[in-house]
Structures are given as structure tokens and as C-alpha cells.
Design a protein around this nucleic acid. Structure first.
Lengths: 229, 229
DNA sequence: AGACATTGGTACAAAAATGGTTGGATATGG
DNA sequence: CCATATCCAACCATTTTTGTACCAATGTCT
């Protein structure tokens, strides 16, 4: 298990995270990245590990490094990254999730194994442990993990695949820009209540309650989205 | 037989779950899986069991293992969406369509333009013109076009994109094999009645009727599928 | 111009982590 | 009883990560 921030990270996860931040626009073009030693401290790993990750990104032509100066973003995307993700608005995303995840929870109630439920509960507990004062970024990640573990319960490969890819969209720019506005302490607390309710319904195999709670959850997310624009 | 011990897992269930996570995209291409020892702990089984499961996945060319480095996803199938298609059963497909298309029709009732409705009607007329004696292959194509034009009405680009790709799955092997059994004259006539009902509901902007008819349509398809196996 | 701090680049050895392997103990079901 | 499967505890070979030290280039200050 890779847990961000709190524990050590290997070269793969470091490069993946940096890549995500660059492609997601968190690090703008031509911007200088933090120093290697600084990133190492931030990830809780050694400088050598960070350098290994950097070499990967350099091979991908995502960054350029200059001795004594720093590391700079030099990405040339457009071709590969102009996928559906970037042209999808957060509102469109919620509408699709409402279709997919409501059906997923219905299947989950029927098909979830004991192990599936344990995984969901684990993610739920981690999510709740973050508390309502956590960083929106951290909450968003844990929230995504929770919802994906719900999809897992469906036992339907196609459903899982779709939920995974649809949730990837959340990492992109338009959504990132709104996270800070929407994910206030108050809303996080509300969301967590709903997460708990969804899990309880699923755990007791109550299909109607599970569906109702999931719809309520996505409806709230949609309302928050509309309120923030 | 395997009694569902809540914690222990045998090689079969471990490999099945890992396979699902790979196919579902939770473990993406080129990503490193958790270490064997870590997976063993997670599943509450021994490392040997995990290794047995891994060997299965290696035989299936799903993963590649490197000493001292780790286990990596080598599944070209995750690279594009047509591959998940081949490993999706018709039943799984119907379940996903039930999620997507029901939501699509709800959005369609709200958002469909006059031009959208004309396109749907055109496809519907063509479908009906085929009659109930047509080739299953031809009906399937026209049916697909009709359903895609419904998705178009949603005005949600992500929804349209997903419905397009999900419907592509129908062109593949497992589905093709069943077409001839299911698409009898009698069933084609039934399906066409439902198509007409869906269009009428959409055209008169009756969201509840549209949803009800769509659910009924997919339910019938599901029942036929179950009956044919 | 010169001193100094900061940056990435390099080298090397110790420590840790990883998959691969072996042998024997312990069930479980035929 | 045997066959199969699982578990456990080692050990091996390889790779990765770490820690440390130092080098070279750059930027900033006096």
C-alpha cells in the first residue's frame, strides 16, 4: 500500500505524482519545481529516489534540469492529453456518476463479498479519520478511493473500469479549481455522514436505502457544484 | 468446498480479485503492484498463496515479475477500451447500460434539441422499417444507432463518449454468439414496440415515462439474455 | 570582483526491499 | 493412508533506496 505524505514513497509513486501535478496544471509551464532536496523531504524519501523519478520525467520530456538553476516544466502535451477528460465539465461528470454509481451500488448490494466490504470500510475509516479540517486535496483523494471501492463491490469489470476512468477526470483542472471552494469543513462533515450512511446500507444489504443514500450524496455534490459557479 | 471463511483466501480468490483490479484499471499499465508480502498480509493469507495466484496471472500475461524490483502490470488490454470489451460478458454489459442509459434518457428529456429528436426519430423509423424478419445482425446495428442517438440527446459529452464505447462492446464475440438465439421475430417486434414507447415519452418530455420505458427495455434484454444461457 | 548559498550531477557503500526457492509442518478431503 | 493445498520460516540473488560526501554551475549578496 502506498500512502501519500505520511510514509515513504518509492521512485514510481513519486514520478507518478509529479507527472499528475504537471499534466494537471498544478505546476505551470516554465515554472520551476521545488529543489530535489525539498521534494525529497516533502515525500519523506531520499534525494536519490527523487532523482530517479526526475530522470523518468526527463525521459518523457516533461521537465528540463539545469545545474545550479533548478528543474523546469517543459511539457509538450496536446496530442495525447486532449482526451475527453479535459473537455468534460464537473457538472457533466456528476451527471454521469449519478448514472454509473447508482447502478454500481445496486449491483454491490447483491454481489459484494466480505472482503469487498472490509475494503470499503477501511477506506471509509481512513476518510473519516482525516476529519473535517483536512486539506481538500487529501479529502478528494480519500473520497475517490472510497467510491472506487464501492464500485469494486459490483464485481462487474466493465463497471469498475468505467468508474475508475470517470473518476480520473476529477484530477483535472476544472475540478481542481473548484475543490477549495466546495470542500469546506461543513461540507466535508456532511459528505462523511452520507458516506457512512451508504456503507451501512450496503453492509446490511438494503438495496433501497443504498440507492437512496447514493442519489442523495451525488445530488448534494451537484448542488454544491451549482452553488459554487 | 470453500466455505466463506471471512478472512482467509485461497489462490483462486486472490488471483480473481487481482485480475479484477487489473482489468478494472485500479492497477494501471506499467504500475507496480504491492509487494507479495504486503498483498499476503492484506488478504490474510500466506505469501505462498499469493505467489500461486501471481503465477496464474503471469501465465495470462497480465503481469511481469522482476527480481528485486517488483511485479508490474503488463496488460496491453488496459491500454484501450476495446480490450476490456472482450473480457466483458453480455450480462455485465446490460447492467452497465442500465446505469448509463437510464441516466442518459433523463438528461435527454431535459436537454434534447429539436435536431436531436429528429435524429432519433429517423433512426427509429429505419429500425422499424427493417421489420421483424430482418437479419439479427442488421437489427443489432440499427438498434445500436437508435440508442446512440438517444445518448446524443443528453448533450453530455462524457455520457455520449461512454455510451459510444460501451455499445461498441456489443460488436464483440460473446455478444455476437447470442444474437441469433435472442433476436427472434417475436422479440424484435417486442423491442420495436418499446423503442417507439421510449421515443414517444422523450418527444413529449415525460421524464418518468421515459425512464420507466428505458428500464423496461433493458430489463427485457436482460431477461432474454438470462433465458438464452 | 569576490564570498557565499543554492542548485543539479556524480560516486560509492551500507541497508532495505523485492521476487525466487527450499524444506518441513499442518490441515483438508477423497 | 495419500494427494493436494496451505502455511511458515528461513535463505538467495537482484534491485532499489538510503546516507554521505563531494563536484560543478548558477544566482545573490557585499
Amino acid at each position: 500500500m502506498r500512502i501519500e505524505g505520511s510514509t515513504n514513497a518509492d521512485a514510481h509513486s513519486v514520478s507518478a505524482e509529479l507527472k499528475r501535478k504537471i499534466l494537471g496544471g498544478e505546476f505551470q509551464y516554465d515554472e520551476r519545481l521545488p529543489a530535489e532536496r525539498s521534494i525529497a523531504e516533502q515525500f519523506g524519501c531520499s534525494r536519490g529516489t527523487v532523482r530517479a523519478a526526475m530522470e523518468r520525467l526527463e525521459d518523457l520530456k516533461l521537465i528540463e534540469r539545469r545545474i545550479g538553476s533548478g528543474t523546469f516544466v517543459r511539457h509538450k502535451l496536446t496530442a495525447n492529453e486532449t482526451d475527453i477528460a479535459n473537455s468534460t465539465s464537473p457538472l457533466e461528470l456528476i451527471e454521469v456518476r449519478r448514472g454509473l454509481e447508482v447502478q454500481a451500488i445496486r449491483l454491490a448490494v447483491v454481489n459484494a463479498s466480505a472482503r469487498n466490504l472490509q475494503a470499503v470500510e477501511k477506506n471509509l475509516i481512513e476518510l473519516e479519520a482525516l476529519g473535517s479540517r483536512c486539506e481538500p486535496e487529501d479529502f478528494s483523494k480519500a473520497d475517490q478511493a472510497f467510491h472506487l471501492s464501492l464500485a469494486e463491490c459490483s464485481g462487474n469489470s466493465l463497471m469498475i473500469w468505467l468508474c475508475n476512468h470517470v473518476n480520473d477526470v476529477r484530477c483535472h483542472r476544472q475540478w481542481s479549481a473548484m475543490k477549495d471552494k466546495i470542500l469546506t469543513q461543513r461540507q466535508i462533515a456532511l459528505y462523511n455522514k452520507q458516506h457512512r450512511a451508504i456503507f451501512e446500507a450496503l453492509n446490511s444489504r438494503d438495496i433501497n436505502a443504498a440507492e437512496k443514500e447514493t442519489i442523495a450524496h451525488l445530488q448534494l455534490a451537484k448542488d454544491d457544484l451549482l452553488g459554487a459557479t
